[in-house]
Simulated scan of single mutants.
Amino acid sequence: MELRHLRYFRVVAEELNLTRAARRLHMAQPPLTRQINNLEEELGVRLFVRSPRGLAFTPAGQFFHEHTLQILDKLEATVAATRRLARSKRQLFGVGFVPSVFYGQLPRLVRELRQKDDVELTLAELTTVQQIQALKAGRIDMGFGRLRIDDEEVEQEVLFEEPMMVALPAGHPLDGKTPSLSELAEFPLIIYPAKPRPSLADMMLGLFRRRGLKVRVSQEANELQTALGLVVSGLGITLVPEQVSQLTRRGIVYSYLADTNITCPILCSRRKGEAPTEVMLAANAILDILVENRRSGRYP
C-alpha cells in the first residue's frame, strides 16, 4: 500500500462519486477505479458499495476512512512542521517522559527550553521502555522515566530518589495513618501502567514480593490519571511517587509510608557516546539547577 492510495481514497470518500473524484485528482476515471480496486484487494475487504447513483461506505470503509484521515492529517502537519523547522534553522530537541514526572521539575525545563529562539522542542509521553526505543531510533534526545533498563546504547542518570506514597480514597481505614506495606497488602491494589511491561507496575509488585507479601490486584490501568480515578471510585489503593501528591483531586488523599526507604528513582536517559549538542548542554545545565533545587527542598 502506498501513500497515493490513501490520498486517492480520501478524495473518493469525500465525493462518493468516481467521476467527480477523478476530476479533482486531474486523472481519468478508469485508472482511479483501478487504484481503489487494488486498495480493496490488498485490504481484502470492500470499502464501498457501488450503485448507479454513486458510492456508499461499507462499515469497513467507514472505519478505514476515519482512521486514514487521522494518518493523512498527521502526515500533513508533520510535513508543514518540517518545512517550518528548515526555514527557521532551529534545532529539533525531543523529550520523552512518563506522566508521574510532570508534577515536579520537568515543566520548568520545558518552559526554559521553549524560550530559546534556536530550539524547536517536541514532547512525547512514553514509558521508560518506549523512551529507550525512541532514543535509539533518534525520535527523542532525552527521556525522563522511573525504570532502570540495561542497554549498551543508552546511559541512565539517577537524578534523585523520590519517596513513594499511597493514594487512598478519602475516608479509607488508613486515611491519616502512616501505613506499612504489610498493612497496604490487606487492601486491593491498583497497578499502572498495564502495558507495555516492564513498568512501574512491576516495580510496585516487587516491593511487596521482596517482603514476602501477597497482594490482590483489583485493576490494571494504562494511565496514572485512570488509576487515581479508580482509587476515588473505591476499587482499591495505589502507590505513587511523591510529586504526584501535588495533584489535588477531590475524594483522594495521599499518605507517606512507614518505611521511608521505599523510594522510586527519577532517571534521565540519553544516547551513550554522543558529543552533546548546544541544546543538550543547555538542557543539562537547566536540569542541574532543578535537581539541586529538589534535593535542597526548595520545591517538590
Rank of each mutant, 00 (worst) to 15 (best):
E2S: 11
E2Q: 14
R4C: 06
L6G: 08
R10W: 05
V11E: 14
A13P: 08
A13C: 14
E15Y: 06
T19R: 14
R20V: 13
A22W: 08
R23K: 08
R24F: 11
H26D: 13
P30Q: 11
L32A: 09
L32M: 13
R34M: 06
I36R: 02
N38L: 10
E40D: 07
E40C: 05
E41G: 03
L43W: 03
G44Q: 08
V49Y: 05
P52I: 05
P52C: 02
L55K: 00
T58F: 07
T58P: 03
G61T: 09
Q62V: 01
F63W: 03
F63P: 00
F64A: 04
F64I: 04
E66I: 04
E66K: 06
H67Q: 03
Q70P: 00
L72N: 01
L72I: 12
L75D: 03
A77F: 00
A77I: 02
V79T: 10
R83G: 04
R84P: 00
S88H: 10
V95M: 15
V98Y: 06
P99G: 05
V101E: 04
F102W: 12
F102G: 11
F102P: 02
Y103Q: 12
R108N: 08
L109K: 14
R114S: 14
K116D: 09
K116F: 04
E120I: 07
L135G: 07
A137G: 08
R139W: 11
M142I: 14
G143K: 09
G145S: 09
Q156N: 10
Q156I: 07
E157P: 06
V158M: 11
F160Y: 15
E162S: 07
M165Y: 05
L168Q: 10
G171T: 10
G171E: 09
D175E: 13
T178D: 07
P179Q: 04
S180C: 13
S180L: 10
Y192A: 10
A194I: 07
S199D: 07
L207A: 01
F208T: 12
E220N: 01
A221F: 00
E223V: 01
G229Q: 05
V232M: 02
S233I: 01
L239K: 02
E242R: 12
E242F: 09
V244F: 02
T248Y: 03
G251T: 10
G251N: 09
I252Y: 00
Y254E: 08
A258Y: 11
I262G: 08
C264W: 02
P265T: 07
P265C: 08
P265V: 11
L267R: 11
R270K: 14
R270G: 03
R270S: 07
R271P: 01
R271D: 00
K272R: 15
G273I: 13
G273H: 11
T277D: 12
E278D: 15
V279D: 07
L281T: 12
A283K: 13
A285S: 15
D288L: 11
E292N: 15
E292Q: 15
R294E: 14
Y299E: 13
P300G: 04
